[in-house]
């Protein structure tokens, strides 16, 4: 059952992604990427990653869609059609290279099969996490956190530092948006500075330079 659902949902994702690539109406693209997010969240549920599904739904289908809509209001909905150019070959080759690299890797017999409980990934660190018995430095007995949701435990404690980093990332994004768009009034420096050369406005000179004019000294004076 799960396998079939998995195949259907993933297939749906692939189809959606290809459709997104072809669409030009940005609004439609946004809607489709919402569907894409929902689908991927569905897959996460299937793959037992409920926390991830939770987040993906909230972020991918919710916040991101709203953000894209907000942007579309400001930038317009329609992407212009592109005629085929020779330069388009290069990205295509790059894409093929990336794909080939992954296919190459996937065909390796070591590549863990779907759901394989004996794969290294599921054997190495996971057992200790799942048993909630991870050793601490200087402790004989492994320390137990004692919270049922192992994802939360891992997230906030075992790899709590990553999560601190994550919070800082989102903090950074917030500040970044504030810097870029958070203007109390409309700024016009972009428009002003569309000339060929731009840059900061120079400060007016404060005093005459002492060495300003060494070239005009009269010889023999």
């Amino acid at each position: 059952m799960e396998g079939i659902l998995n195949i259907i949902l993933l297939g749906g994702m692939a189809v959606t992604a290809i459709a997104i690539a072809k669409m030009r109406n940005l609004f439609v693209v946004t809607m489709l990427s919402g569907i894409y997010s929902l689908l991927s969240a569905g897959i996460f549920v299937l793959l037992d990653a409920v926390d991830v599904a939770f987040t993906e739904a909230a972020v991918g289908a919710g916040i991101t869609t709203v953000l894209f809509l907000s942007t579309l209001i400001l930038v317009g909905r329609e992407a212009k059609p592109r005629q085929f150019r020779m330069q388009a070959i290069l990205p295509f080759l790059l894409v093929l290279a990336v794909g080939a690299g992954l296919i190459f890797a996937s065909l390796d017999p070591n590549m863990p099969r779907f759901g394989d409980p004996n794969s290294p990934a599921n054997q190495r660190l996971a057992p200790e996490f799942l048993a909630d018995s991870v050793p601490q430095v200087g402790n004989e007995a492994p320390t137990r956190v004692g919270i049922p949701n192992i994802v939360t435990t891992t997230l906030a404690s075992y790899r709590g530092y990553d999560t601190l980093g994550e919070v800082v990332v989102i903090f950074t994004a917030g500040i970044a948006v504030l810097i870029l768009l958070g203007a109390a009034r409309r700024r016009r420096e972009d428009e002003e500075l569309e000339g060929p050369e731009t840059g900061a406005k120079p400060e007016p000179p404060k005093e005459d330079s002492r060495m300003a004019d060494a070239s005009k000294e009269a010889p023999g004076s």
Binding site: G165, T172, I175, A176, I179, L180, D190, L193
Partner: peptide
């Protein structure tokens, strides 16, 4: 290795922003 990715992103996001602050469009 993963922590490296996180901090890579912190530095990247902030440098994108810092760069975008140039006065030229």
């Amino acid at each position: 290795a993963f922590n490296l990715f996180v901090f890579l992103e912190i530095s990247s996001l902030s440098s994108y922003t810092l760069i975008s602050l140039g006065r030229n469009r």
